[in-house]
Design a binder for these strands. Sequence first.
DNA 1: ATACAATGTAGAGTAAACTCTATGTCAAGG
DNA 2: CCTTGACATAGAGTTTACTCTACATTGTAT
Lengths: 123, 123
Amino acid sequence: MEYSIGEFSKLTNLGIHTLRYYEHEHLITPGRNSSNRRCYTDKDLAWIDFIKRLKNTGMPIKEIQRYAELRSKGEPTLSERMEMLISHRKALNEQINQLQEHMKKLDEKIEFYQREIESITRE
Amino acid sequence: MEYSIGEFSKLTNLGIHTLRYYEHEHLITPGRNSSNRRCYTDKDLAWIDFIKRLKNTGMPIKEIQRYAELRSKGEPTLSERMEMLISHRKALNEQINQLQEHMKKLDEKIEFYQREIESITRE
DNA sequence: ATACAATGTAGAGTAAACTCTATGTCAAGG
DNA sequence: CCTTGACATAGAGTTTACTCTACATTGTAT
């Protein structure tokens, strides 16, 4: 299947402007039809989903750019890409642990508030 | 104990400029000495630590501002502050779950890469 | 043929959260 | 006394990631 930028925008939940911006930043390079309109494929869809995953886990555009560049060079860059993912995985793991620590402290604070409020309403 | 902005900057790992910016945004309001220099206390230190926690868990400055405003009004705002924290807790929980989902997918991708590389080097 | 909606490009504008610069004050050491 | 270093304010500049505007083309329905 092929999609116009409007269709692709709906499929990905990314604005048309954002899609053009991503192309400008070389994250994605859809084909063009005879009248120069962008033609996105299902492969592009899978790729955008992956980009979104990287973004949602805190990878900056610059780094995704680097990954996309390696990807466009194909097989010879497989191991380098894997290293990027492994290092990102590590960062993500640390991020999750930190957040869980924060969650714990937040829970303590909430409990503290609960006691405070109880002791005040009891007056 | 009281601290100058320089000392406080080292204690908190926040730049002097950042501390002044936070003050400008009403996140923190240290006292001043006779010559108008900022005097941070241990209470300010605990408060900044909490601000950092909120920030690290994705709360925007505007919302921390709101929390700080309630905090400055004291006891009557306790329950409203607690509600903010509870709602933030919920968002944080969702964030962590999402990240764990992303982590899973990332692991799958890494495994895929490993297989690819193995099958190529075996040639 | 014509209107209009979707698309194209180039470049300007925005929002968040800092970060830095210019300029001035002040207390303490040489 | 004078310089120096930390601090003060006001406001400009930076970075990231969009988001929007202006204007030109093109495909489709009337």
